[in-house]
Design a protein around this nucleic acid. Structure first.
Length: 259
DNA sequence: TTCCGGGTTT
DNA sequence: AAACCGGGAA
């Protein structure tokens, strides 16, 4: 639980420590296989910037309530709410949602219309209600426990790789990388990596980020949150604010001005 | 692999 | 009106 005492995990580290918990070799291999120029220099440069990235999180990271949650069900449910939706919209309904449905059992016993109306502002209402209720049934069958295992989570719980991994990372302190449009866009720009149409389904992007994510629970938490927030606040899809970016020094996009 | 789902924000 | 967003289904 120590890594969740601070919502951002651990935001201080050293280059030495990072070299011991980042799979530099595999990251270079992935970049090499896709034809990125100077993969060695690119990965070392990224590693050099990682302490700065984590320090940036400490100063600018967003303090959302789900980042302070420790209950696995609440973390799982939050991730369902966050799928394809802006975080601020989730923050708006978060207090009411968990006042009404603090546990899987409460959600099951609640009136479905209440659930629908609370989730309504987020969109994807049918999908979210179905997912939450079916997962809540599974959860209630086993004393409100959420499985701490990727395979056990994905198909049965009606979530994909992103949400399953987010549960393991944020609820069970298992170090791993999250691939969404934000994290993919960042590595795409930093490494001048030509992203596929649906980056979140690319095994190569997943492998690259997995290699780069520190193999340490508190650092992995900070690493992922830093990329998520950087993608939302600085490295935005439109008009990125490169001068304010902690990764700019080692970033192809920031250096060349465009991709 | 492609297609679609659904609100809100811009 | 168009952009924004993961995952299941076609």
């Amino acid at each position: 639980m120590t890594s969740t005492d601070h919502p951002f995990g651990r935001t201080t580290t050293t280059l030495d420590e990072l070299h011991g918990c980042v799979d530099v070799t595999d990251a270079k291999r992935v970049l090499n296989s896709i034809g990125v120029a100077k993969p060695d220099k690119a990965v070392e440069g990224f590693l050099d910037q990682m302490p700065t990235l984590l320090a940036w999180l400490d100063e600018h990271g967003r303090d959302y309530p789900w980042r302070r949650a420790s209950d696995p069900w609440q973390i799982y449910a939050s991730e369902i709410l966050l799928q394809r939706t802006r975080s601020d919209a989730v923050a708006d309904i978060y207090p009411e949602f968990f006042a009404q449905f603090p546990s899987a059992r409460c959600l099951l016993e609640a009136d479905e219309e209440d659930l629908r109306s609370i989730v309504h502002p987020l969109g994807f209402v049918n999908h979210r209600v179905r997912t939450l209720r079916e997962a809540a049934e599974l959860c209630a069958e086993v004393q409100d426990e959420v499985p701490a295992d990727l395979e056990a989570l994905q198909q049965p719980w009606r979530v994909g790789p992103y949400t399953a991994r987010a549960c393991l990372l944020f609820a069970f302190d298992q170090p791993m990388a999250l691939v969404d449009t934000n994290t993919a866009r960042i590595v795409g720009r930093v490494f001048d990596y030509p992203l596929p149409e649906q980056p979140h389904k690319s095994t190569r992007v997943q492998r690259l980020l997995d290699a780069l994510a520190p193999d340490n629970p508190a650092l992995a938490r900070a690493f992922n949150l830093a990329l998520l927030d950087l993608g939302a606040l600085v490295c935005t899809s439109e008009n990125p604010n490169c001068p304010a970016c902690p990764l700019a020094e080692g970033c192809e996009y920031a250096q060349t001005g465009d991709v």
